[in-house]
Each structure stands twice: as C-alpha cells, then as structure tokens.
Design a protein around this nucleic acid. Structure first.
Lengths: 266, 266
DNA sequence: CACTAATTCACTCAGTTAATCACAAAAACC
DNA sequence: GGTTTTTGTGATTAACTGAGTGAATTAGTG
C-alpha cells in the first residue's frame, strides 16, 4: 500500500495527541487543521475521516485547550495554532504535571531504605533493567562490580559510573573489548578492568553486577537465537538486596574469590 | 471531613498518574506501594481501595512500565521504584513523545503564513489569550503596541517584549502604574510608555494590542463583578489579522491618532 | 490429607466515546 | 420569493473500555 502507518506523520501525530489526552476526533481534527491552517467543518471532514457533524465538538474540545480558535461566521472557520506553539504548550503542561506528581510522591514516600533480605525480584525489558542498574550505582558508596556485554555498557551507565568514581567508589569492570577498554580508561581512570570470569561468549549473555557487596543483579538476553532480533524488550533480569540475600551471597562469593584469585587482592 | 481531596497527596498523585495513562487501579496501587515500599496484594488492598483480586493486574501494568518489580513467591511481593526515579522516567517518556509529535507536526504543517483578512477569531481563557499575545509579539518585526491592566503584564510577556526589542522592534506600552513603569524602563529601556488612551478603570478591562499595524487583539475580563472571583478562565479575547481586517483597521486608526496627537509623532 | 490463603480467570455492569441520523437554521440559487 | 443546498445542533444507538465481583484453581500450612 502507499502509506505505511508507522511512517505517516499524520498517524504518528494523531497517536501522540491521543496519548496527550485528546479524543480520537479531536486529534484527527487537529492534524487536519494543521495541514490546512484555516478551514471549515467541511474541509476538515474531507481530509480527515471525521464525520462532518462531529467536527464541531472536536473543535470545541480543541478550543477549550487553547489549540484552535473559532470564527463565528457561517460557515464557521477554524484556526489552528502553529506546530511550535502547540508543542511548547504540551511541554509546559507536562512539566507542570510532573512537578505536581513529584511533590505529591515525595510527601508520600517514606523513602525508608527498603532492606529486602530474602527476596529476588524480576525486571523485564532493557530500559527497566538499566534503571535498576543505574539506581544501584547511584546508591553505592564503596564498590561497584559490573560485568557486561558491550552493547549494554551504554552512555548513561558510563556517566553514572563516572559520578560514582568521583564519590570515591571503586569501580571494577569486565567483559569489554580492548578498544572500549581504552575509552573506559579515559573516562573512568581509576576503574579496574578485569577479564571476564567464566565462559561468557556462547551464552545469551547479559550483565552481572554487584554494588557494595549487598546489591546484585543478573540479566540475560532472551532472544539469543530466535525471537525477533530487534525486540528491545528482550532482556530479563533478577536482582536481590541485603547482606543475607541468597543471590547476593552467591555473587559475592564468586566475585571475591575470582577477584582475589585471578587478579589482585586490592 | 478529615481529608480534603485536593490537598491529600494520595489523591493528587493518583490524579496525575491517571493523566499519564495509568488505569485507576494501577495508579492507586502505585501510590499504595509508594508508601509501603514493599508489599503484598493484601497490603496494597488494605490501604488503597483496590480489590485484592485486581491488584495483580494493576501490578502487571506497572511492571510493564518498569515501575514495579515482582517477587515470584507466595504470597507475591511487589517492589516499587523510588519517587525520584519514577518522575525522571515520566519526564523522559514525555520528552520523547513531545519530540515525536513535534517532528510529525513539522512534516505536516505547511506553516504558510495564514493571512486571514476578514475574520475575527475568538479565544477564551487567560492562558490561551496570553499565547496569542506572545505569538504576535514573537512574529512582530517593527512595532508592538500593548495596553493592559497590570495583572496581565506577566513575566512571560515582558520576556517576549525584551526579545522583540533586541530585534529592533519598537515597543509602546500603556496602562501601567508608576511603580511598574520603573521596572519596565529597566527591563526594556527603549520602550515608549504612554498614558492609557481612554477611560479604562471602570470597565472590565483586559488588554488591547497591535503588532506591525496588521495583527490586533482585544480582550475583556468577564468576571468583573459577579462570577467566581478567582476563575482563571475569565478572560475572553477576539483577534484579527491582515492589513484589511476590520478590527485591525479600527485599532490602527485609534492608535495612530492618539499616539500622534496625545504624545509624540515618533 | 484437609484446610486456608493466595492467585487467576471469567463475567457483569457502568460510563465513555465513536458513529449515525434527524432536524432546524441559514445561505445560496434560481 | 420560493426552492435547494449547505451548515449547525441535538438526540440516539452501538461499541468499547475499565471498574468491580465472584467463582475456580493453585499453592502453603498444619
């Protein structure tokens, strides 16, 4: 077919506008008006598939939001604000909302350190896993050990590691190719780079990390062979926290042993 | 009653979370978990009024979004990310969406200068009116005349006027008390301050503006006496654009006459 | 093995919104 | 001036989503 819905700017815009809380009609009407600039209900109905009689309601909704102005004539004319202004508007709106949410949650959250001992938690999806990793690095104050395949040593992680090092946290990294090692030595000079601990390459490798010997995370990439090759939600991790957590215990044992044995005793 | 819903951080947070696209159950569950830190379905159901049997669905939804992790034990335990991380997450998410929307709309909008001649458009609500004013100032390149009551000479307008002045646009302001005039002279030194043109004080005064003698806007505050005194949606404006627009013609005549007559001829 | 708690699943009900239709008012056109 | 088309408003119906409830299955516990 001629138009691929995922590429068509119309569909994309409509999709996003709905996400911002507009009704389907309002979103489609807005997009139609954006390419028209100014138009009547008939014009809008022609190029969008909004029933003509419903354009009026949709425009009212948009007018409420300050996105469209109405000319009281017959036929009514509808004027749409510029794309730039619209986006600025949404950004402000959302910024305001985020602020409200932040303060509300802060008032609420006792933020008492959740010292879970026994449990092992699951996280799915690379973004979510990265979040946990970042949080662990952020709250570490002595040591971070991070074994990873290269595709998972992303910029945000390096940033967080750099911050940690500045706080005096000792960083130990593994699983990195020689080229990237150079980069790391530049960005995080104090980091200790050690070789990967076990046979790593032919497994659906993900990452293994430990912070302060009390927070650990292990992940695998689930689409090593089959599954859609570019599915971003293909990482699955488990993590545990607390000195007596079993996962923590296992990893601490392994790391301590290998680090002291294979490399240096610090 | 003991709890005012508009002040209760729980209600506020739930409200905002729903705006961000979470279901009612998911939002309430999240808030409950935020004050708990870690909890079971029972815990959540006790302090929120989510039916126990539905906590699981809600948690699934939150897990999908990376806001909650699940411990596969019995009873299941749920762990919630910190308030800070949550808000960071939403901010990123929304930023991404706004970017997508912006590019999509840019591809779409011909952004051809909408030169409307005859029409007079309506705008309601102070934020929306301010938007139009800002846009007119932004696109002016010779002259801006702005008469206003003080409460409508807000910071964002002053900023935009300052920018305009830097571009070499001549600014003419009226309707400002002596104290504020000093402020203006400091912020926008080149601005010409002229006295209000007609009896202004006993009307439900709003603003009158003209940009480049081709874009004009007139507003009134509709709740001068009655109506809820602090209703923000109480300003109503009309605007017109183009050399031959009737509203433009009228205002141009008045301003030119009064400015040359009463003050100076520039 | 029996009993209880926990979890999942299936179903109902209500509210919302899309969509269609019918009608009144206004414009345009003989 | 009457007729026809266009425009705007309101009512009505259909479809869908999501809240809420309860039954059925599973997992712990004594």
């Amino acid at each position: 077919m001629s138009i691929d819905p995922v590429d068509d700017p119309r569909s994309v815009a409509i999709e996003q506008l709905e996400q911002f809380g507009l009704s389907a009609y309002a979103a489609r009407t807005f997009v139609a008006l954006t390419s028209l600039g100014i138009g009547t209900a008939k014009d809008v109905s022609n190029i969008s598939d909004v029933p003509r009689t419903r354009v009026y309601d949709a425009v009212d909704e948009l007018h409420e939001r300050g996105l469209v102005d109405i000319q009281q004539s017959s036929p009514k004319q509808f004027w749409v604000v510029s794309a730039d202004t619209t986006c600025r508007k949404f950004e402000q709106e959302v910024q305001r909302r985020t602020d409200i949410l932040t303060t509300a949650l802060r008032e609420l959250g006792p933020a008492e350190p959740k010292q879970e001992q026994r449990g092992v938690w699951t996280v799915d999806g690379q973004p979510a896993v990265t979040d946990r990793v970042l949080e662990f690095i952020r709250t570490a104050d002595e040591e971070v050990v991070y074994m990873t395949v290269e595709e998972l040593l992303t910029e945000d992680i390096i940033d967080e590691l750099t911050d940690a090092e500045d706080r005096g946290v000792s960083i130990r990294l593994a699983g990195i190719s020689p080229e990237v090692q150079d980069l790391i030595r530049d960005r995080i000079p104090q980091a200790e780079l050690f070789d990967t601990l076990w046979l790593w390459s032919d497994t659906p490798a993900g990452r293994v990390m430990m912070a302060d010997e009390s927070e650990t995370l292990v992940s695998v990439l689930v689409n090593g062979k089959d599954a859609s090759p570019s599915d971003p939600r293909s990482e699955t991790a488990i993590w545990g926290s607390g000195e007596t957590n079993s996962l923590v215990a296992v990893l601490r044992a392994i790391f301590t042993w290998r680090l002291e044995d294979g490399k240096l005793a610090d």
